[in-house]
Design a binder for these strands. Structure first.
Lengths: 221, 221
DNA sequence: CTTGAAAAGATTGTCGACAATAAACAGGCT
DNA sequence: AGCCTGTTTATTGTCGACAATCTTTTCAAG
């Protein structure tokens, strides 16, 4: 097992970008933690050149914050910002659901059902409940976003919003406290999409995300 | 006059990022044009290190496209993509207008009126009509977006969408062919915001952008 | 003339060294 | 002691050189 970067055909800058992003999103580094370039370069086994390119890209994604001549730290997402994001997400994912209902192919819809059934079965027998619930929730939303068949919308939601939100600690508690309800809401959304009812799909998706936001607003710890 | 980067306190990487972005947005480089690193480094008077950092950031903004081991070219926006963007913009700027109506301070609203009057007066006596009309339109939309007081929304619209759209050549013809109408629509939106009618402001903004999109769809040249 | 392979050339990818700046420290002064 | 100031140390910013890869050219075979 090599702690350095695996030997694939991508450039070092690409690989260190991916690994560093994963380490941030998966919580290997704490929000607000200072990340020295020498330290990171050693960790990933590269020189500072490609590392800095990766840092610049992650900075653009708001996963890292950078002060010239001072250094880089892991971006910390305030609850206030998270709620702001949810308000925007409500509109964007509502759109995604509407367009998904209009655009998704039969195969895509079948895949969505399959995913839902998996999650309902896993529901009981999973050990690390929090983790799998969160990932399951993400899977479902990913599918619908992709189903919108609008590249701009997919890019905004996945690259700009989801990477930031995934790393938020309160995200965990969110669906953990309303597991069955989230699944029910997912099922209804899937039904609307299968029925090609874009208007309803948008409404349900907006409500789904709005509920999550209100939950956040009432548990501002 | 120095063709290289001015001597301010920002780092070279920051300055070359700004200049290169301007050169792309202002059309100094053609969409699709290949940009060699040596060429660019010479142009801006820096080495390839900071230049590559700037390129990575502009790539993240979708102003540049990059293929490993091959090179960088100016991103070309297809009409199809532009229309996709407008569909998303419709939702996002509709939101911005709604929140601006709810959040903008009295001073901000006064500034918006001032801006409108300026544009109406400039309307006739301007030489480079196309340019000033486009910039005027942008000014107005910028203000409203900022007025939403939602950092995420501002960031998505300005950094992810506006920089891409500004460089699109058909953008010019868009409002050029409907100058007075665009101004009227702007005025109505401003009125709704001043009246604190978020619902109406959103409706009018969506319609404003929707019209522009339909214009694009019917003039797909 | 076309096709394909090999060689030459040009461009991108990566690295280590040095310069510039900020942070940490030490010593003297009030 | 507390605080200012000069010095040392550590970190980031920039550069030029070399390696790796792709592109173009050359040239011979069919």
């Amino acid at each position: 097992m090599d702690t350095a970067l695996a030997n694939d055909n991508r450039t070092l800058a690409e690989r260190v970008f991916t690994r560093l992003q994963d380490d941030i999103v998966l919580g290997v580094f704490e929000p607000g933690q200072k990340l020295g370039e020498a330290e990171l370069a050693a960790r990933y086994g590269v020189s500072r050149g490609p590392l800095r390119e990766a840092i610049r890209r992650l900075e653009a994604r708001k996963l890292l914050e950078r002060i010239p001549h001072v250094g880089t730290r892991v971006a910390a997402l305030e609850l206030r910002e998270l709620i702001e994001i949810y308000r925007v997400r409500e509109a964007l994912e509502g759109l995604a659901a509407r367009w998904a209902a209009e655009q998704m192919g039969a195969a895509e819809i079948a895949g969505l059902w399959e995913l839902l059934e998996q999650h309902e079965q896993q529901q009981d027998l999973q050990e690390d409940v929090a983790y799998y619930q969160r990932e399951g929730d993400l899977d479902f939303h990913y599918r619908i976003i992709q189903g919108s068949h609008n590249g701009t919308l997919v890019d905004l939601l996945l690259n700009e919003i989801y990477y930031r939100v995934r790393r938020y600690r309160y995200q965990v508690s969110l669906n953990l406290h309303r597991p069955q309800r989230a699944l029910d809401e997912h099922r209804r959304i899937a039904e609307a999409i299968a029925a090609r009812d874009g208007e309803l799909a948008e409404l349900l998706m907006r409500r789904h995300i709005s509920r999550a936001r209100k939950y956040l607003e009432n548990h501002d710890d």
